[in-house]
């Protein structure tokens, strides 16, 4: 029960209430197709959010994840179209993501540019260069079944994106909660001087955080490309804001020092189920933007109040 400390338990309660409410309102909510669709669309967000949780915990942020993800869909589709090899496509994607993560990390640590600015600049650079790379959408002309399977397939009746997410999840739960790296990330975010004076090489772990996040974007980008069956600039536009909002809703602090993967997952599920509910209840889809906005502000506000009361 260690996970369900105050914040998580409230989020969990909220989630349960949402599910109960929606299932009363529309029994379709519990249909297999609907649950699959919720989980599938949650997975791509979650995978990137694991990395973002680490970054925010260590006091950094990456605004370039959406632009990078769009770029990844283009690269993976194009490279596989040309070479006919999924492995080469993946190598190209992860090589590229590794490079971008390293650049983000080094600009942050070596040039000492605030990560909000550094990754904003990276976002502009990626957004521009993906257009330059290919203005038009790149369609799947290779038609390799395995590639479509990544995003659209099922394993034991579970959508593949969910399987991939569940495969990655334990690493991050363990990493953040049970290894020294998790402690390092959170001490660097909470008190960088204390971390440094404890012999921790802050910059190394910050770069690591950026690299991990970029690589995870690679994973999500490949899934997205497979789901859409295209690679397209702008396909993950605004993704960075959704990821950050979900992580913050999950209880990770923007000021660093406090991060929880479970909270992040709950945050994403809540946002995605609200999305889903809005469709099921035939409420105008525009509320998919409005409601999360309110929830984000409220969640952080109540978190602040609770902290004040507890000490």
């Amino acid at each position: 029960m260690k996970y369900f400390q105050t914040n998580e338990s409230i989020l969990f309660g909220l989630l349960v209430l949402l599910c109960i409410f929606l299932s009363f309102y529309n029994p379709q909510f519990y249909s297999i197709q609907n649950i699959h669709s919720i989980l599938r669309s949650s997975s791509t967000v979650m995978i990137v959010a694991f990395g973002m949780t680490i970054l925010l915990t260590s006091g950094e942020v990456d605004l370039s994840v959406g632009a990078l993800m769009s770029f990844v869909t283009v690269i993976v589709m194009d490279v596989i179209n040309i070479t006919g090899s999924i492995s080469l496509g993946l190598i190209a994607v992860f090589g590229f993501c590794l490079l971008i993560g390293l650049i983000n990390g080094l600009v942050r640590t070596v040039l000492n540019v605030n990560s909000l600015i550094a990754t904003l600049a990276m976002m502009l650079i990626l957004q521009g260069s993906v257009y330059v790379y290919s203005m038009a959408a790149i369609y799947n002309t290779h038609l390799i079944p395995l590639f479509s399977f990544i995003g659209q397939g099922f394993f034991l009746n579970i959508p593949m994106p969910v399987v991939i997410m569940l495969f990655i999840l334990p690493f991050f739960v363990v990493l953040l909660n049970y290894t020294r790296y998790g402690r390092y990330f959170s001490s660097i975010g909470s008190n960088p001087d204390a971390a440094k004076l404890s012999g921790i090489n802050n910059n190394r772990y910050k770069v690591l955080g950026f690299v991990i996040t970029s690589l995870l974007v690679g994973v999500s980008g490949v899934i997205l490309a497979s789901l859409m069956d295209t690679g397209q600039q702008g396909s993950a536009k605004g993704f960075e804001l959704i990821v950050i909002a979900a992580v913050l809703l999950g209880g990770t602090s923007f000021m660093g020092g406090k991060g929880t993967i479970i909270g992040t997952i709950l945050g994403i599920l809540i946002l995605k189920i609200i999305d889903n509910g809005i469709i099921l209840m035939r409420i105008p889809q525009e509320f998919q933007l409005i409601v999360p906005g309110f929830i984000l502000i409220l969640a952080v506000y109540f978190d602040g109040i609770r902290k004040k009361n507890s000490g």
Partner: peptide, 27 residues
């Protein structure tokens, strides 16, 4: 520069020495 305020007493104490508490990669 000393305490890490988001951590408890135990975590603050072990911060520089986590390696000695590790079994494989797990604390």
């Amino acid at each position: 520069e000393g305490i890490v305020k988001d951590m408890n007493l135990r975590e603050n104490m072990s911060l520089p020495s986590l390696k000695i508490f590790e079994d494989l990669f797990i604390i």
